[in-house]
Nucleic acid binder design. Sequence first.
DNA 1: TGAGTTTTAGTTCGATCGTTCTAGAATGCA
DNA 2: TGCATTCTAGAACGATCGAACTAAAACTCA
Lengths: 202, 202
Amino acid sequence: MARPREFDEETVLDAAVRCFWRRGYEATSVRDLIDTTGITGASLYNAFGDKRALYQRALEHYVEGSISARIRRCESLPPYDAIASFFAEILSRSLGDRDHKGCMLVNAALDVAPNDPGFQEIVAAVLVRVEAFFLRSIEAGQSNGAITKSQSAENLARHLLGVLMGVRVLARVRPERALLEGVVETALALLKGPSRPDTAKP
Amino acid sequence: MARPREFDEETVLDAAVRCFWRRGYEATSVRDLIDTTGITGASLYNAFGDKRALYQRALEHYVEGSISARIRRCESLPPYDAIASFFAEILSRSLGDRDHKGCMLVNAALDVAPNDPGFQEIVAAVLVRVEAFFLRSIEAGQSNGAITKSQSAENLARHLLGVLMGVRVLARVRPERALLEGVVETALALLKGPSRPDTAKP
DNA sequence: TGAGTTTTAGTTCGATCGTTCTAGAATGCA
DNA sequence: TGCATTCTAGAACGATCGAACTAAAACTCA
C-alpha cells in the first residue's frame, strides 16, 4: 500500500524497555526514547500512540521475554527444583545487574501502578501468574514428598511471592551477595521442612 | 534579630511527607508542596534549600516517626513477640492504607535511591538498622528457645528483611488480606521452627 | 508512470518544571 | 523611633516536558 517502516518494532521495544527499566516512567522523557530507540517522534506517536501506551507495550514485552520465559523454563523441572531454579536465576540476575535496575515489573509496581489503575491491574495479574506457578510447584512437591506439608500450599506460595518481591527490592539498595542469598536460602530451607536425616551429608 | 517565621517546621515536614509519600519524588512538584504545606516558594527554598533537600528532610522525618518509633516500641517485648508485633503493625498499616501509599522508605528505595547515591546510602542504612533489630531479636529468641536454631540468626534476619520488603510491595499492588497475612504467617511459623507439641491446641 | 499512502526529519506548541527575583510587611534591638 | 534583618506573597526566569504539526521522501499498486 505505502511506504514500509524502516524500524523493527521488536528492536524499538527492546530499546524502550532499556530506557524505562533503567529510569522508570516519569524520569524517562519522550526525547530519551527517541534518542535510544533511534526512531523519530512522529514515528513513535504514529506507531505506539503515546508515551503511556509505549510503556505498556514495553512492560508487556519485558514480562513476556523475562518472567513468562523464566516460568516456562522452570516449570519443566521437578517441583522443588523448579522453585529453586527460579530463585537461582533471580539471584544470578540481581547480583549481575551492574546498574541495579532490578526487575522492571517490580519497579512498575511502585512507579506507575499506584497512579494508574490500568497498570495496577496489569502488574497484579502478572504477580498472580507468578504466585500460581509457585502454587502448582508446591502442590506437586507436597504430593511427592519433596516439599513440606507443615504449611498450606497457598501460604507457602504467598510467602515465596513476598520473598521474591523482597529480593528484587533489596537488590536495588543493598546488592550484597550474602544478604540476597540469605533471604532465599532460608525460604528454600523452609520448603524442605524440618531437616530430615537423609538431606544431611554424612 | 528579625521577623520570626510564621510556619512550624514540623508541620511543614509532615505535609511534605504526605506529598512525597503519596506521589513519589519526581511526580511531586514544588507547587504541590507549596499548596500542601501552606508555605510559599521563597520560604520553602529559604528554609530547606531545594526540592531534593526537602525530600531528604521529609524522608528522615518519616523514618524517625514511623520506622525508628516502631523498632523502639517492639524492642521492649520478648524476642519472638517483638518480631510478631513488628509484622502485625506492618500488616495493620498496609491493610488500612486506603490509598495504598505503602512505606515511604520502600518507595524511596525504588524511586530516588537508584538515581542518587546519597539517597541510596540513606535508605540502605535504615534497612541495616531494621535488619539489626531482627538479628538482635532472633539471637535473643534463639537463646531462650523461643526461636528455632535450625537456621542461622543472620540468615533468619536477612529473610525477615526480605519478607518485610515483599509485604510492602505487595500491599501496593495486591492489597489482599489473605495474601499479606499468608506471607507473614509463614515467616513467623518458620521462626518457631518444626511444630512442637506444646504449641498445638488440644 | 503517477496517484495515493505512510513513512521520515525537524520544528513548534502550550503547559509545567525547579528555581530565583522583586517588593513589601513584620519583627528585634539600639 | 529607626535601622537591619528576615519574613511573606507572587511574578518571572529559562529549561524541559508530552504532544502535534509541516513538509519532503519513499514506497505500493493500478
